[in-house]
Amino acid sequence: MPETTVETRRLTIAEALREAIAEEMRRDEDVFLLGEDVGVEGGFGGAFGVYLGLVEEFGHERIIDTPISEKAIAGAAVGAAVLGMRPVADMQYADFLFECMDELVNQAAKLRYMSGGKLSVPMVMRAPVGTTLRGAQHGQCPESYFVHVPGLKVVAPSDAYHAKGILKSAIRDDNPVLVFEHKLLYGSKGREAAGGFDLTAEVPTDDYTVPIGKAIIKRSGIDVTLVATHVSLYRALAAADQLASEGIECEVIDPLTLNPLDEQAIFGSVQKTGRLVIVHEDTLTGGWGAEVAARVADDCLAYLEAPIKRIATRDVPAPAAPVLEQAIVPQVETIVATVKEMLG
């Protein structure tokens, strides 16, 4: 968190991301934005309003409204990045990343290595995730597909301070970085989904960055370590509140970066608590939680006092009906029950 002497104000994640992009574009002429519906006059400023106002300041030359052509968006970002530009590419929903898997996985991730280290691909791809009653093709959390790919970095901020700081780091990074944000966390309207947590955060007015690859301890505790991102992070915090009233102290970690993972932060916590629960909205099988669990099992087995637990979305596509969606996505009660059982 920022020091008290620093001047700050409360921002939503959407506002914080907008500031990060605007400041980086002012700072560095090589930074530009491309995506669908990002700069049309009278339009939406991107699918979730993150870019509102940017076209007025930077013009259509640097805020580029593309055709509905995700392959071209990602491919253009790769090509421009190779020549030293710093594109920020936008996917309206993370589900559409599957349209440009080749550009991300075969090109962006591999060009540096394939060139014997002669090239780099300093691009950013932003993509909103999360089940929000929009059904199977607009509700996925596909972070894990990309965590799997050597050459890509994957970050997943959950509050305004870290979102702004890590997006700036991503833009300045010389590697392709995917930035996953949760649709319900952009504004203050997602408060209910986040268990009533205030989704605005104090954000410094001055330039700052948040490093890629460093986790955040959101709450310290000695009984159980909870690792979670996005809405699941807020649910983990709500569960920790409830459990605290029963004398169970959870340590809650926001990994913030999913690749490269901040192993030391997680190992250190598990060595203290002896218990680990990972919560994510991606489906269970092959989700990034499995990677965290495997690494902890590798490194901290002697410290573990209980089997590692993963709480994830059930292995089904996102259903549209609210009652069905609610049934498959990790809820506070499940986290509370799992922790109690572990301590049983």
């Binding site: 929009r134 199977a136 093709q137 596509p317 259903p319 549209a320 069905l324």
Partner: peptide, 10 residues
């Protein structure tokens, strides 16, 4: 028509 699993877009 999709047993509640599809919704408006499907």
């Amino acid at each position: 028509c999709c047993a509640g699993k599809g919704g408006s877009m499907h």
